[in-house]
Design a protein around this nucleic acid. Sequence first.
DNA 1: CGCGAGCTTGATGCCGATCAATGCATGTGG
DNA 2: CCACATGCATTGATCGGCATCAAGCTCGCG
Lengths: 247, 247
Amino acid sequence: MNTSAESSKVRLESFKVMCSSCNLRELCLPVGLSHEGLDRLDSLVAARRTVARGESLFRAGEVFSSLYAVRTGFFKTCVSSEDGRDQVTGFQMTGELLGLDGIGTDSHTCNAVALEDSKVCVIPFSQLEALAHEFSELQHQLHKIMSREIVREHGVMLLLGSMRAEERLAAFLLNLTQRLQTRGFSASSLILRMTREEIGSYLGLKLETVSRTFSKFQEDGILEVKQRQIRILDQDKLQKLVNDTNC
Amino acid sequence: MNTSAESSKVRLESFKVMCSSCNLRELCLPVGLSHEGLDRLDSLVAARRTVARGESLFRAGEVFSSLYAVRTGFFKTCVSSEDGRDQVTGFQMTGELLGLDGIGTDSHTCNAVALEDSKVCVIPFSQLEALAHEFSELQHQLHKIMSREIVREHGVMLLLGSMRAEERLAAFLLNLTQRLQTRGFSASSLILRMTREEIGSYLGLKLETVSRTFSKFQEDGILEVKQRQIRILDQDKLQKLVNDTNC
DNA sequence: CGCGAGCTTGATGCCGATCAATGCATGTGG
DNA sequence: CCACATGCATTGATCGGCATCAAGCTCGCG
């Protein structure tokens, strides 16, 4: 167990990886950027940071100064209400940006927690804006990323507002595998990095309901579930659960 | 009832209002912009558009080319799943931007419908990006607006994921009045522009539940409800409903 | 005036929450 | 190496909040 004192130590390093040679550059901020732009982005993203499993990358209330691109590992973001309830608002994997929530008020509004040992690229935001000023492709890519985040959240609102438990879990699994597939992983087999409770929080369900729904999917021959190891046996049925009017 | 043929007629006009003299400029895109920048923005926002109650400003699937700033009136945005369920994702009032969802894929992903006769300023996005390129305050303001939209949606996710009906409606009313107050309206009295069903869709509830909850608030002396006329009698109780751990 | 869209209110039922016990994997210290 | 603690997952029993179904009601409008 990490004490909170320990977890507040920030480890900065330069496990030197250039954007220009990063295998995530087609997913991440550099999309569409010229060679020169890439070099400039490289010099801007000087620092990398290691975040151990369970530690926070940033917390609600902290001053916002940088965006973070996930280099390796897996994160969750969550917001909490005054009375202590909290809601997982997203899971982020390699190539995805963290910290967009902080731009509006210059302070973070959610917590970003590593679900496994992770590394992120630190992108000082004011410098990024300055660079985007010079390279319109970078500016446009940033806008696209923010817009897609808004659209993703619309999808989550639809899910939370009108889907039933099975549909929610099916949509969640399909989303996860689709993103994993983009990154070159199997479309049918995955290891969950998060607990049932975290899945439940994201989907607006209790952990017991998540567990029961996994079991049901297993009985129905849709999934094979061994703790956090998931194998999708019937992708079509899963897809139909999301699409069909119901039942 | 408007036929869809009729509603597809786009009425462009120039009910000439300059950003520089617009009473919404402290809420809208021009925040922080220099005098020169304002003039440039003015020349960019050449067109205004009138949208009658019930008509769409844009629909999911349409090509994205512009953002829209609400000049007068009131809108809802909604997404729909393949099977026809739809989810209201937001209500927009004067000074707020519509269309941010379209940036990511160059096509709109939701429908924007006027809930009363409305006028919007049309902001061609590629030109806006070009101008933002010159005026960093404009760029920054756009980033802030998008970031705040992301944060707003986090709040909705918290609401949909973990609040009960009364809390949801209380949070909704407080949010509405707070935004109305920013625009110089009363903090305690408002007219709803949307139906119970639209409120329900936004809050993940059925219209009957919304109606019952309004009635309960009235019994409890928190509200006076006359159809769509709402008067808040006890702001504190409403606030406590949102904050308290529950019950 | 009478129609219809939107709203209210009641009766009933179901999905998922809650409470509770057990199982299972991992890790730790005797 | 085993005994035990701990965190997470599964499963069962029961409960409750909201959905659903079903009447009426209200008010604006042709």
